[in-house]
């Protein structure tokens, strides 16, 4: 499972090798093309899965997200593609404290998903309205100029109103329950252009947060009414973790990230966790102005 990039890319194992080959080739080319200008600087840091934010009035536009630095330690952003399915979403992060080695941040977001809007791409999407609200506390430790370690615990509240087929969205709907995840990102700056990251994510537990009623009619003679409060801990996804290895290249305004991960994929933004481990890519292009 992995937040951040590769939105919508959940690959089968069969597809993964081709993408791996292509990714490795591209990475090799880019590694060889060292730029004279480097922007992995003390001031400009990787903001995904860390406590760091954009600088004041910085604008990030990329394949997956738009973000804006409202003021120095505060960014506001949105995931782009969900809007195609009328899924309003917003996230923010506030780096509320920093010294030479440590940065602390608070983040949060809100997604409003109407699964009926996804029926064009998944007929089993159901008709649920899902409110997703992730909240995170982030801490980044700059060990030296080359190494930074970030720890981000994330609690995601999921409230579902309506019926949802748990097998919808390639099984991601099965993970549409509130959950607590712990992420750890280790960054190694090889040069001023190139950095490598290792991102580990672990689902500590998941549980639903609302009681509910539903009625089913298995046949014409039988009616079954259920009154329940889901209090399930992580029953399905024991030891659900993922590891993502990526390379991040940064030039004057352009940034490029590529990598590959394996494990229980995490749907970015909403933090729904896939029940089965998969190989997944990490790909992002973004500009910071």
């Amino acid at each position: 499972m992995h937040e951040r990039h590769g939105h919508g890319f959940v690959l089968s194992r069969a597809k993964a090798p081709r993408l791996l080959t292509a990714g490795a080739t591209l990475a090799a080319v880019l590694l060889g093309a060292q730029s004279a200008q480097a922007f992995h600087t003390k001031e400009q840091r990787i903001t995904d899965d860390t406590a760091y934010t954009l600088r004041k009035r910085d604008f990030r536009v990329g394949m997956w997200k738009l973000q804006y630095g409202l003021w120095e330690p505060f960014l506001l952003g949105t995931h782009i593609w969900p809007w195609l399915f009328q899924t309003a979403n917003l996230h923010l992060k506030w780096r509320y404290w920093q010294n030479d080695t440590v940065a602390l941040g608070l983040g949060g977001g809100l997604f409003h998903v109407d699964t009926s809007n996804f029926q064009k791409v998944d007929a089993d999407a159901g008709n649920a309205k899902i409110l997703v609200a992730p909240a995170e506390l982030s801490a980044s430790f700059r060990i030296d100029d080359r190494f930074t370690w970030s720890l981000v615990p994330v609690w995601t509240t999921v409230i579902v109103d309506g019926a949802i087929n748990v097998e919808a969205f390639e099984g991601a709907a099965r993970g549409a329950v509130s959950n607590f995840q712990l992420t750890s990102t280790f960054e190694w700056r090889v040069s001023r252009v190139t950095a490598f990251t290792a991102h580990w994510r672990h689902l500590v537990f998941q549980r639903t947060t609302l009681s509910g009623d539903f009625v089913s009619h298995p046949d014409a003679y039988t009616t079954i009414e259920v009154k329940a409060a889901g209090l399930t801990d992580d029953l399905d996804f024991k030891a659900a973790s993922s590891l993502l290895l990526s390379a991040v290249f940064s030039w004057e305004t352009f940034n490029f990230r590529i990598g590959v991960g394996y494990g229980h994929y995490n749907v970015p933004g909403v933090n729904f966790v896939l029940g089965e481990p998969v190989v997944f890519p990490d790909l992002d292009l973004y500009w910071i102005f």
Binding site: D124, G126, A128, V160, D161, G162, A163, I164, N165, V166, A173, R174, A176, V177, T208, L210, S211, G212, D213, F214, V215, S216, H217, P218, I224, E225, V226, K227, A228, A229, G230, L231, T232, L235
Partner: peptide, 22 residues
């Protein structure tokens, strides 16, 4: 998926939780 009702969470999650059925 065969649900209807006032407020429902996923059927799977509910049935793994605590409650009763009639």
């Amino acid at each position: 998926q065969s649900t209807e009702g006032d407020v429902a969470t996923t059927q799977q999650s509910l049935l793994q939780g605590d409650g009763y059925l009639k």
